[in-house]
Design a binder for these strands. Structure first.
Length: 437
RNA sequence: GGAGAAGUCGCCUAGUCCGGUCUAUGGCGCCCGCCUGCUAAGCGGGUUGAGGACCAAAAUCCUCUCGAGGGUUCAAAUCCCUCCUUCUCCGCCA
């Protein structure tokens, strides 16, 4: 949710942001008009209600007297008169309240469609207008090494690590089993990630992954992203697509102690995505699946610290892939590709040898105070009054894509896979994974 | 799944039967001040959150907020309905 004051005092800023996102600029004027209406309606209701309360105060004692039989005829007559006025006023209050409710809902409806203000440094444009911030690691020259590149599916089969056939048999397309070393790799990656997160001041969390509408709505996943969310209609529950949802909603409706910030949580959870609208994309392998496990970083900070925290998140994500010795690049996502809540987003894209290109493996977003305002998560400023916090989220490891990058980048001619040093302690010291006979 | 109890402004709590002096009581904690060799104690004041009016700002004022949402009524913490949550007992079960 956008700050109404920004909307009122600096509508041009909002218009510019809308334009950068290729969103509806006229929504700004509709929101402003709705805001004015809303305030007028509130004032009308408040005034009528105030008068009604005054009348009520006069009626109370008088009524008491009349009931006790101690009232004079004049007082009884006055009571009758007051009651008549109060009845008339009650109708007026009812109407004013009804109007206020409608106008309020209209305002909420409009302002909810406006995404977060884009960060001034975010590159303007569509999906392909990202800016590459940096490229790290060295891409192997497989041909020179005499290695015929196998893709992760082939390697997964050789190692009996990934089974998509049975995944499809049991659950359908875009499902898979991780077996043997595949399953071990998941735990190794997750443990490695959690160890790093803990070292960086994160509290490990295993959150619920089935949430109520309020949590889904508050984190901004029921807007344009709604079609990708699994909805359990019988129970009015939603399966989360990321631990960001339960982690963000963890402090919903709370006022956080300013001295406790930044509050950092690392959530491990399964993630469920319908992948509507991506038919035909990445149909081979486990790059794009309906379910996967992930370790997600989440931080609540003061608004003024958000940008620095966001940079830290990026650094920690880079540290993770650097430790896995996987070449990657960092892109600054373009404004048109930010989603509802993010003001700025950095993606890490790992080199995928079988595709000869970089593919997104993690992503970190600075949602400023947008998400916190929706979830009513505040802290106190210097003057002691409440103010929304900022929220930052970032993937530390999304298991299947990390496994893809790992297997493909570290494969050797015979199909064996080298284990990077950082992961060895989590795999009982194994340095090489040998394919099954 | 069945039966029952409860939810009040950080925490505890009065009020709910019987609607109106509730503008929600008191205690604890916390904040400010006074007093005091220091500390403690004592004394005085403040202390839910949200929206709005006025405004440069502060002060002030108004409305909403007693788990949430509806309803009854001139008037709801209080009466009625639905939902949420917690607890107790029974049943079932990782």
């Amino acid at each position: 949710m956008l700050d109404v004051r920004v909307l009122r005092e600096n509508p041009d800023l909002v218009r510019a942001s809308q334009a950068a996102r290729a969103e509806d600029v006229t929504a700004v004027d509709r929101a402003l008009a709705a805001d004015a209406e809303r305030r007028a309606a509130a004032l009308a209701f408040d005034t009528a209600r105030s008068e009604q309360k005054d009348l009520g105060k006069a009626i109370g004692p008088l009524q008491g007297k009349v009931k006790a039989g101690k009232a004079t005829d004049a007082e009884a007559a006055e009571l009758t008169q007051l009651m008549e006025r109060a009845a008339a006023l009650a109708a007026q209050v009812g109407q004013a309240e009804q109007l206020q409710r409608e106008v309020d809902a209209a305002f909420t409806a409009v302002i909810s469609t406006i995404p977060n203000l884009v960060h001034p440094a975010a590159p303007v444009g569509g999906e392909d207008d990202f800016v590459t911030r940096e490229t790290a690691g060295t891409i192997r020259d497989f041909a020179a090494e005499g290695v015929v590149v196998r893709d992760h599916l082939e390697l997964g089969a050789m190692h009996k690590a990934i089974d998509v056939e049975r995944g499809a048999k049991v659950s359908g397309s875009r499902f898979y089993y991780l077996t043997g070393i595949g399953a071990e790799l998941e735990f190794a990656l997750v443990n490695h990630a959690l160890a790093m997160a803990r070292a960086n001041g994160f509290t490990p969390v295993v959150p619920p992954t089935l949430v109520r509408e309020e949590a889904m709505e508050g984190t901004g996943f029921l807007g344009q992203a709604a079609e990708n969310v699994y909805h359990l209609k019988d129970d009015e529950m939603y399966l989360v697509g990321t631990a960001e949802v339960p982690l963000a909603a963890y402090h919903m409706d709370e006022i956080l102690d300013p001295n406790s910030l930044p509050l950092r949580y690392a959530g491990f959870s399964p993630c469920f995505r319908r992948e509507a609208g991506s038919h035909g994309k990445d149909t081979r392998g486990i790059i794009r699946v309906h379910w996967f496990d992930k370790v997600e970083m989440f931080s609540f900070t003061r608004v003024e610290d958000a940008e620095v925290e966001h940079e830290r998140f990026l650094q920690w994500e880079k540290d993770f892939f650097t430790s896995l010795e996987i070449p990657f690049r960092v892109i600054d996502t373009a404004t048109g590709d930010l989603g509802l809540s993010a003001a700025r987003k950095f993606d890490i894209e790992a080199w995928i040898p079988s595709q000869g290109t970089y593919r997104e493996v993690t992503s970190t977003s600075n949602c400023t105070d947008f998400q916190a305002r929706r979830l009513r998560i505040r802290t106190r400023d210097e003057s002691g009054s409440t103010t929304p916090v900022a929220t930052i989220n970032g993937t530390l490891v999304a298991v299947p894509r990390a496994i893809v990058a790992l297997l493909e980048n570290h494969q050797q001619a015979d199909g064996s896979v080298r284990v990077p040093a950082a992961l060895q302690p989590w795999l009982h010291g194994r340095t090489v994974l040998e394919p099954c006979a």
